[in-house]
Design a protein around this nucleic acid. Structure first.
Lengths: 390, 390
DNA sequence: ACTTCACTTGCAAGCGTTTGCAGATAACCT
DNA sequence: AGGTTATCTGCAAACGCTTGCAAGTGAAGT
């Protein structure tokens, strides 16, 4: 055995002398089996060659045992697994992936690490990924501002087997590039109008409809809304759900009660102040997500408006904080971690069978009753009707 | 040009006919330059060979230009860069790392994705990493329960250039394995008594001392503490800081006021109930982190004990939520994201110079005054001394 | 007993890099 | 001018793996 090299030219030795008379120096060197001094890697990891030697089979058999168990005798498999275990062998992902195998890494693209929403989804993703023995590569988009193409190339070239896009807006050419390369990806919490992508989505319209209906059924008639971003499907749909519920209960739509927000706390805060400062303020406010609902709570607190006594507040998402505010927030639960889990499952499916037709999965939201909503004052048992507006 | 292979045996063609008469079939095949049908990869990415062809230099020159600019003429460099740009070349990380280069990936090991603390640190890490063009591989430890060695091997073998350990407890053999392999790593928010590791830490003792002193200076004398995990240095040090402050102000230490928690909300909650239910309850409570402080707030709310009127509460960490609870939490700010940033910087340093002696960096905490602390009732202007305990 | 066939195994090539070595060229001394 | 040195460039090997191909093996079919 020579130096653990694949011993490719072993058979040639007998003819070296003969050849050397004829062929050029370079060719000869190919035949001479003396490696130059090349002790580069310090961490001499155990490779399949070691496992092969240890178990007495060839390295290809080892490879076959270790990745996909195809056409290997039980005997060989057993020996290999034992040897691998004994040696503490760990596959070198990079080599495997270079050679055309799976890297068992999936990329997760998120806008930023700045709120609990991402964390929840990521948690689901992480858990499901771990179950399947995959690793998670986290990319934040701000990293790639302006060079998205580079990014797509990096990912598709790179070590990820698939990509989870948890970003609100994905530029079209992103998707185009991914589709082009047949690279498996899933849009998480996004709707793809073109139906070319696999998506996991939630019932945003229905959730908003339920939230609004809840408020109406409590007796509210003047219901404000703080919208999300209107360039996001979820933002639009939540507004539409609100409008539909209002209309279905024959309440006239009042544009003054619609404040346009952006899914972040500050606009919830200003929106809260705006709505509560109206000549005839709403008795209930539907914030298109919890973060903005927190802003409303804050604004209400500052104005001495009590929740839910003076104004009911309902959110959307049910992020962990919503039980930590006072009063605890009534909200629409969005199964964020489940969303993460489901997307992982879809992605792994897709990695196995890349040409499956795209599916669009929609998960159900549900109303979570807590203490931030109640019947409006004028309808409460005490009937203190005039206190506020007279 | 034949098929883009490295054209290694081009020169041999003239002698093939001659050789074929003598050498065995296998050898002959080596010389024939007809590749078998091997169109495996579908994503025909652009490689350095393409760039080389495009720019008219050899692929090694391209490689040299692209990684570390050593010994390349300006002319060549320019041509290569232009060609790479034109072709949209993106380095294949796996190949580079296989061949011995840097992968520009660092691994981040966290216990789980279940609280804002991690998120904050991760945010700092992410931002700093992006600045340097590194990618982030996220590992959660629950994945590796019981097979830590495997994990260490995977990472060290694998594609990470370095490792950030944001886990509360790192098994010794973990560290030993990493040290063994000379693998660059940093302990984040941990103290290494052996001084063999690079660490980034915060002034836990001082922070606790400050928190307690703050309460004392407000007039509190009966101050409860809910401790963190006692198997964590930070937990121990915060308790010590508390004790030191008490002693320095000649307040006797009362073991009844020490409730042992675990840094998670539930023990804060039960601890809050416990302390507030004592015959002589404390007038102030120092929770060893914000999460537990939230638990205390909740317990207080349920008991009708008002914060800060009846009891002051102070936390530790200053996670984003601490401004979102009511009342907003007075706490000790721990520069979590800065901690992330600093660790990244240390790690990248270490990657460059692996044999630098270990450094231990400690970042300063500071008191953040909000509304959850005030002077105790018996000292407040109204002097309603007896209301509570009579 | 002799094919035929299915199954198992091994060899070698190649995935896209980096890098030691050695030509080639240019620049510098003497 | 001749020799030496420094600088640049190119070749080929290697990193650890997967996989097509072909050779080997034993069981089944005739």
């Amino acid at each position: 055995m020579v130096q653990g090299t694949p011993a490719n030219l072993k058979t040639s030795t007998p003819i070296v002398a003969f050849l050397s008379a004829i062929v050029c120096k370079r060719l000869q060197k190919i035949f001479m089996n003396q490696p130059p001094n090349r002790p580069r890697k310090k961490t001499q990891a155990v490779t399949i060659v070691d496992v092969a030697r240890e178990s007495g089979v060839s390295y290809s058999t080892v490879s076959r045992v270790l990745s996909g168990f195809e056409h290997v005798s039980d005997d060989a498999r057993e020996k290999v697994l034992a040897a691998a275990d004994r040696l503490g062998y760990v596959v070198n992902v990079q080599a495997r992936s270079l050679a055309g195998g799976r890297s068992k890494v999936v990329g997760v693209l998120v806008p930023a690490l700045d709120n609990g929403y991402i964390l929840e989804v990521a948690r689901g993703i992480d858990e499901e990924l771990n179950k399947e023995g995959y690793s998670l590569m986290l990319y934040t988009t701000h990293q790639h501002a302006g060079k998205e193409t580079q990014f797509v190339n990096t990912v598709a070239n790179g070590l990820c087997d698939g990509l989870l896009l948890v970003v609100p807006i994905v530029p079209d050419h992103y998707l185009a590039a991914l589709q082009d390369r047949m690279f498996p990806y899933i849009l998480v919490d996004q709707y793809d109008a073109t139906h070319k992508s696999n998506t996991v989505y939630a019932t945003n319209w229905q959730g908003a409809y339920d939230a609004t209906t809840h408020l109406i059924s409590l007796g509210h008639r003047r219901i404000g809304i703080i919208t999300g971003r209107m360039d996001l499907a979820s933002g639009v749909e939540r507004l539409e759900g609100y409008k539909a519920a209002i209309a279905d209960h024959n309440i006239p739509l009042d544009d003054d009660l619609i404040y346009s927000g952006d899914f972040f706390q500050p606009t919830g805060y200003t929106g809260g102040h705006h709505l509560l400062g109206l000549p005839t303020p709403p008795t209930a406010i539907f914030a298109s997500n919890d973060l903005m609902a927190f802003g409303v709570l804050q604004a209400a607190g500052e104005r001495g408006v009590r929740v839910p006594d003076d104004v009911s507040v309902i959110g959307f998402d049910d992020i962990p904080h919503s039980v930590m505010v006072h009063p605890r927030l009534t909200t629409i639960h969005q199964p964020l971690d489940q969303m993460g889990r489901v997307s992982v499952r879809m992605l792994l499916d897709l990695i196995e069978q890349p040409d499956k037709p795209p599916r669009n999965l929609t998960l159900a939201t549900r109303l979570i009753l807590r203490e931030s909503t109640s019947a409006p004052r004028m309808m409460s048992p005490e009937g203190v009707k005039q206190t506020h507006n007279s």
